[in-house]
């Protein structure tokens, strides 16, 4: 096993893990809100793609990463409204409307990229910001406190999401609507409004996830940049048992497995590459099979709410 257990390698594995987990965290935490309100949004990948494109395009034109981020959030919001309108107001089957949104995002981002940019080109995205003092702590300083602002935000979003869901009235309403919309409705909660809010919040965060790919990790845009990461984010919500902390665990585990397999290959450890790249997926399936607590699944997940008929 030669030099795999050195501080340098361990630090490298963890740094890569943190970077890779960022888009998963944004997208999966957003999807957690959406699903807790009862709406499965399978369009996350499409939102990430279109928002990722607009973030890239804004930076490509202006060099302003904040404008890119804002545009990505706006695209997320618009696509969230589309998803809400179709699945909440029109009460269409959620899975179908989500897939429609995903296809729309994939096709539209590809079309806009071809028409507006034409060829692959890179931009300067968010740069790492070292946090004073904390960034100087040996070992963990370089792993945790020398990242860009999107990485910090993704990790801060975990306790924030937990707080909103567990400690605020809004969180209670979101969960009530996802568990028993008829009961929530009977006590005066506007089910559709809460679902609109949750889906849109999830979509805005999916937009940030897309931006984290195009203007933070890869710093470029290419057709199908996400390569299905949005679907993995949806799976992470189930993996995490609809809890922000569970989602964090899932995102870190999946990213750690991916990071570790890359390092195994770089260090020349004698593991067949095809086995190494399977590692994150195999691990995910094993944990999904063993650890997921299905009891926590929102009872009204993927169910339309017809006022007065339920």
């Amino acid at each position: 096993m030669m030099n795999i257990f050195t501080w340098d390698v361990l630090s490298g594995v963890l740094r890569t893990m943190i970077a890779l987990s960022t888009p998963f965290l944004f997208a999966a935490l957003g999807e957690t809100f959406s699903q807790l309100s009862g709406v499965v949004n399978l369009g996350v990948d499409g939102i990430m793609l279109l928002a990722g494109f607009f973030a890239f395009y804004a930076v490509f034109l202006t060099g302003n990463v904040w404008l890119g981020l804002l545009l990505a959030m706006l695209v997320g919001l618009v696509m969230g409204l589309m998803m809400s309108f179709v699945s909440v107001t029109l009460k269409a089957q959620q899975g179908i409307s989500g897939i429609g949104l995903q296809m729309f995002g994939l096709g539209m981002s590809s079309l806009l990229f071809k028409v507006l940019v034409g060829t692959v080109t890179s931009v300067t995205g968010f740069r790492p910001v070292k946090i004073p003092l904390l960034g100087d702590i040996p070992f963990i300083g370089s792993i945790l406190f020398n990242n860009n602002v999107l990485v910090y935000s993704a990790f801060l979003l975990v306790p924030l999401s937990w707080w909103v869901l567990e400690k605020t009235t809004l969180g209670l309403k979101i969960k009530a609507v996802g568990q028993n919309p008829a009961a929530a409705d009977s006590v005066g909660i506007n089910v559709n409004r809460i679902r609109y809010f949750s889906v849109c919040l999830g979509a805005v965060l999916a937009g940030v996830a897309g931006a984290s790919l195009s203007i933070s990790i890869a710093n470029l845009f290419q057709d199908n940049l996400t390569s299905g990461q949005g679907f993995i984010a949806v799976a992470l919500v189930y993996f995490g048992g609809w809890s922000p902390v569970g989602v964090l665990g899932g995102a870190l585990l999946f990213s750690l497995a991916n990071s570790a397999q890359l390092w195994l290959q770089v260090l020349g450890i004698n593991v067949p590459a095809s086995l190494a790249v399977m590692l994150p997926y195999v691990l995910t399936i094993v944990v999904l099979t063993v650890a997921v607590n299905r009891g926590k699944q929102p009872a009204a997940l993927n169910k339309q709410f017809f006022r007065g008929e339920n």
Partner: peptide, 9 residues
């Protein structure tokens, strides 16, 4: 096609 993973690699 996985650009993000290639970047990480």
């Amino acid at each position: 096609s996985d650009v993000a993973l290639m970047t990480a690699a």
